[in-house]
Design a protein around this nucleic acid. Sequence first.
DNA 1: CGGTATCCACTACGATACTG
DNA 2: CAGTATCGTAGTGGATACCG
Lengths: 230, 230
Amino acid sequence: MGASYYQFCPVAKAMELLDERWTLLIVRELLSGSERFNEVRRGVPRMSPTLLAKRLNQLVRAGVVEKRDDRYVLTPAGEELRPVVDALAVWGVRWIGELGERDLDPKLLLWDMRRHVDPAAVPEGRTVVLFRFPDTAPGNRRWWLLLTPGTADVCDDDPGHEVSVTVTAPLRALVGIWRGDLAWADAVRAGTVELEGPERLRRGLPTWFTLSPYAGVPRPVRAGVSAPSR
Amino acid sequence: MGASYYQFCPVAKAMELLDERWTLLIVRELLSGSERFNEVRRGVPRMSPTLLAKRLNQLVRAGVVEKRDDRYVLTPAGEELRPVVDALAVWGVRWIGELGERDLDPKLLLWDMRRHVDPAAVPEGRTVVLFRFPDTAPGNRRWWLLLTPGTADVCDDDPGHEVSVTVTAPLRALVGIWRGDLAWADAVRAGTVELEGPERLRRGLPTWFTLSPYAGVPRPVRAGVSAPSR
DNA sequence: CGGTATCCACTACGATACTG
DNA sequence: CAGTATCGTAGTGGATACCG
């Protein structure tokens, strides 16, 4: 655990555990349903496995996480961190709009989208979505999402199936849509995002993803800047 | 600002600013109404002034705090951190019950009580409350609180006025009452806390303080442990 | 898959003294 | 009152390789 603040204040006591780097992001992953070490790791790819192991053990010792044969599950205390993570996310989405280039990780984006596919909205059979990000590093330009009403898989190399719809966009734009900074419809209309494929699928695609849970958070009203249409 | 997580996730972006040591405690102080440098400092006495200055500047650069001639005031973005601090406090009070000896700082306690005096409940005229903590370090054993319906002042040496009520208790017990872990009535009945003075004042004293804003947060139900009566 | 081991660089933080 | 200046160290965190 982190250094003590030597204060009896509940905020201080909470932060002794939670203000350490990565800790709340791990909790975020666990709240999102990840349970296994490498599953959590996909959500914090820039964290070394040593440090992840250390943090997970800290959380176990703090009574926030319980380890059941290779599965890390939140205890009631851990589950009750949801309001904290939610409050942080709401604040972050409202007040930290500027994203650096390095913040735009396609793998995290696709992995996140995968988690929020709406099974009821996805067409019958198999749908293959190809995402093209012309502006990213060579190895990161093409991603495939294989959707069925029950499954969703991410591939970073050609799975060999025929592509149903292709999405071409700057990575930043797609992240913006995902975060709710930008609406699908606006982006397509403006030509920022290009959809190719049968019209039915082009129209349907925006409904297949429920977007980030915080996409719908209202943004601060700033004079002269209009909100994205929804 | 702290190191980036290189993630577009709003929680990550928020934590880049907020996960640094002390930062949220400073925000807590500002949310509690402190504005001046040394006023904030009283709430984080173990923080070096250099570091406090640095953190305040970071918060200004982040758009969370605005500096107006020696006063630090929260911007709308800063004010919106209240739900974050609240969520942390609620979690902390529920799940971090154990306090170390070093967490029990009488000065912080008195300073905090001072901030939460209920002017409507305090008797007319001047009331002098002497707090005695027999179990603390020599210089910390006696504190005076001078109350009037409009003012409240803390002294760590004898202000010379006649004492109206004396409170004698282990510091831990009084902190427990303050945090809502323990009820005044229970503590007095059990003899843990001793009140001396006219009955009217002894009875009245528990009503003069509204206690910590989080004292009323319901605690997790644990089998065999009963909640304090209120 | 589920982690350890090792090593280094850095820098954040704490302590203390001092200034306008 | 409102901060700077200085300095040393502990220890975090990053990178990479390796193991059961």
